[in-house]
């Protein structure tokens, strides 16, 4: 069953795959402060609508900064600045 549905799945897009433009790590260029757990606006960029921490493939951060931003987000959650979970609002 799963195999047949896999076979029917349309290939994504047409033509050759274009390489995606790499995302810039805003912390490595010194634009943002990674330890600033009070900066809710900055931290919102790195969590999903439901409050989860986004993966590295979405944030584009280096491994070092991804580890550190996750610690910063967890501090902000303890202070009720960020939610642990949020209900997904469907439009």
């Amino acid at each position: 069953m799963t195999q047949s549905s896999n076979a029917e799945r349309k290939p994504r897009g047409k033509g050759p795959k274009r390489p995606r433009k790499p995302k810039v790590d805003p912390f490595s260029i010194g634009e943002l402060e990674i330890t600033d757990y009070k900066d809710v606006k900055m931290l919102r960029r790195f969590i999903s609508d439901t409050g989860k921490i986004l993966p590295r493939r979405r944030t584009g951060l280096s491994a070092k900064h991804q580890r550190r931003i996750s610690q910063t987000i967890k501090i902000a959650r303890q202070l009720a600045l960020l939610p642990y979970t949020e209900k997904l609002v469907r439009k």
Partner: peptide
């Protein structure tokens, strides 16, 4: 405070 973690110039 973690000064060694700071990234902002």
């Amino acid at each position: 405070d973690r000064p060694e973690w700071k990234t902002k110039k």
